[in-house]
């Protein structure tokens, strides 16, 4: 089921084409990573989805509706934008409480949401004294207030410590896989979302570069095997004879392109050299990401 639909979205700021004809969808029950380098247009896309930015053309719909047409948006969409959206003199609990009042939600949701993000202890503290990570958690709490089925998060891992990032990953997967929510999460660091997302959409300079499942994107990359032996260089020619391309790495190791580990093992045996290291290298996702985004 399609929860988020972006159709031919374009938005310019003056001469800058921030988003240029982008289309993609996000299904319920999945986490979709929205990736792109700095200035790619991620924030602009997400803010268009949330009715904060008016696109020049195209559509950005959640549950088939424009955000501005929703009667009770907090019940449909939870959004996390920058970590600075708080009044420093207001307490975390009061911040959530007034959102509940404005949205017609029971005020008890404020405490529940604070508990869900692990901020129960800091509920009565002024946000001015919060760390960046605590602000991110509070932002996430405000997204949870209406218990929506669609989440839109702009770089939510910013400012979180490794434990916080781990927790966030688990939480987003839980929302999508256990509760059936659609989660769209942006990042400019692939490794940050690599372990969380099901689908990936890559944008660069305002244009969509690639989209697909995580598996589709990674199997496109080439497999290589790194080997290290005690031999004095007899192995490389033998591998090349078998059809491989061999890269000589620093420290005497070889990176072998075009042969399966089993074939390499047989050649090593034939050559009677002692194998000290053999690693099948999965295509580096970060490299794929860099290549995809740098060519433009």
């Amino acid at each position: 089921m399609t929860a988020i639909e972006i159709r031919n979205l374009s938005k310019s700021f003056g001469a800058v084409r921030a988003v240029d004809g982008v289309s993609f969808t996000v299904k319920a029950g999945t986490v979709t990573g929205y990736l792109g380098p700095n200035g790619a247009g991620k924030t602009t896309t997400l803010r268009s989805l949330l009715g904060l930015v008016t696109p020049d053309s195209g559509e950005a719909l959640v549950n088939g509706k424009r955000y501005r047409d929703m009667a009770t948006p907090l019940n449909e969409v939870g959004a996390v934008l920058e970590a600075t959206n708080f009044h420093p003199g207001r307490t975390a609990h009061n911040h959530l409480r007034l959102l509940c009042v404005a949205a017609g939600l029971p005020v008890a949701r404020a405490e529940e949401a604070l508990g869900q993000v692990g901020l129960a202890e800091a509920a009565g503290k002024r946000v001015g004294g919060f760390s960046l990570g605590m602000r991110q958690r509070l932002a996430l709490a405000s997204a949870l207030l209406g218990e929506p089925k669609v989440y839109i998060l702009d770089e939510p891992a910013n400012g979180l410590d490794p434990a916080g990032i781990q927790w966030l990953r688990g939480f987003l997967r839980h929302l999508a896989h256990d509760r059936g929510a659609a989660v769209l999460v942006s990042s400019h660091v692939l490794s940050e979302v690599e372990q969380t997302v099901d689908d990936i959409v890559i944008i660069a300079a305002g244009r969509l570069v690639r989209q697909g499942t995580l598996a589709e994107l990674t199997t496109n990359g080439e497999k290589t095997v790194r080997v290290r032996t005690t031999g004095d260089g007899e192995l490389a020619p033998a591998l090349e004879k078998a059809g491989a391309t061999v890269e000589r790495l620093d420290g005497g190791a070889l990176r072998v392109h075009g042969l399966e580990p089993e074939e390499i093992g047989r050649i090593v045996l034939d050559q009677r050299v002692v194998l000290t290291e053999m690693i099948a290298e999965r295509s580096d996702l970060q490299k794929v990401f860099l290549e995809l985004t740098e060519e433009r």
Binding site: G51, Y67, E82, N85
Partner: peptide
């Protein structure tokens, strides 16, 4: 203006898009 200054206007308009 404090809503614009502290960007709480984002949350305000997310809650009440009209």
């Amino acid at each position: 203006t404090s809503e614009y200054r502290y960007q709480t206007i984002t949350g305000t308009f997310l809650t009440t898009p009209r």
